[in-house]
Simulated scan of single mutants.
Amino acid sequence: MKELLRTTDPTIIAWATAILQGEGIKTFEFDVHMSVLDGSIGILPRRLMVLDSDMFMARAVLKDNDIPTGQ
């Protein structure tokens, strides 16, 4: 798996996940429960991961929907 997106905004993760799953790209969110460590204030970023083989298509889908991937 490769990191597609890293953000502290949970709405971006949710939106990106919905878009990618609509395109048939499986996603997995890392660091979901890290808020326990930061006191639930949301300063630790979450990561959205995709399979290596889906990375090119996933970046294209997010770019088409104006979601920055940091790449």
Score class of each variant (00 low, 15 high):
68 P>G: 02
49 M>W: 07
13 I>N: 02
69 T>F: 07
40 S>P: 06
9 D>G: 07
24 G>C: 03
10 P>Q: 09
28 F>G: 07
66 D>H: 08
17 T>N: 08
27 T>L: 02
58 A>Y: 01
64 D>F: 15
48 L>S: 07
15 W>V: 12
6 R>Y: 06
54 D>F: 00
31 D>F: 07
15 W>F: 15
14 A>E: 07
49 M>N: 08
20 L>I: 05
65 N>S: 05
49 M>P: 00
3 E>M: 15
1 M>T: 05
55 M>Y: 08
4 L>E: 00
6 R>K: 15
71 Q>V: 10
32 V>Q: 12
19 I>V: 13
38 D>Y: 10
8 T>R: 08
42 G>E: 10
14 A>T: 13
54 D>K: 01
64 D>K: 10
11 T>H: 15
61 V>F: 06
60 A>V: 12
71 Q>T: 14
12 I>C: 14
40 S>K: 14
30 F>M: 15
16 A>F: 02
65 N>A: 07
46 R>Q: 11
38 D>C: 09
15 W>E: 12
49 M>I: 09
10 P>G: 11
58 A>H: 03
9 D>Y: 11
49 M>K: 02
66 D>R: 12
28 F>V: 06
32 V>F: 12
55 M>I: 06
36 V>E: 04
6 R>H: 14
14 A>G: 13
3 E>V: 15
36 V>I: 14
26 K>M: 04
64 D>H: 13
41 I>T: 13
54 D>V: 09
16 A>G: 04
68 P>D: 14
66 D>Y: 08
4 L>Q: 01
64 D>M: 13
4 L>P: 07
11 T>G: 06
41 I>G: 05
60 A>K: 15
38 D>L: 01
23 E>C: 09
20 L>G: 00
65 N>L: 06
22 G>L: 06
8 T>I: 14
63 K>C: 06
9 D>V: 12
69 T>K: 00
58 A>W: 01
38 D>I: 05
20 L>V: 01
64 D>C: 14
41 I>E: 05
69 T>P: 05
26 K>W: 03
39 G>L: 05
5 L>M: 08
22 G>E: 03
55 M>G: 04
51 L>C: 14
45 P>S: 11
36 V>K: 13
31 D>A: 09
22 G>A: 09
34 M>D: 01
29 E>Y: 05
71 Q>N: 11
70 G>V: 00
20 L>S: 03
8 T>H: 07
40 S>W: 11
16 A>N: 08
46 R>G: 04
32 V>C: 06
2 K>P: 02
43 I>M: 08
25 I>N: 04
54 D>Y: 03
24 G>A: 03
66 D>T: 11
43 I>H: 08
43 I>E: 02
35 S>Y: 07
57 M>E: 06
69 T>H: 05
27 T>G: 00
36 V>G: 01
54 D>P: 07
66 D>A: 11
30 F>S: 15
3 E>A: 13
54 D>E: 13
4 L>M: 03
51 L>M: 14
45 P>Y: 10
18 A>V: 15
68 P>F: 11
48 L>I: 04
68 P>Y: 00
6 R>A: 13
7 T>H: 01
22 G>W: 08
21 Q>H: 07
14 A>Q: 11
27 T>V: 05
13 I>L: 05
39 G>H: 08
36 V>N: 08
48 L>Q: 00
65 N>T: 02
27 T>W: 02
5 L>D: 04
29 E>I: 15
34 M>A: 12
58 A>N: 04
54 D>I: 00
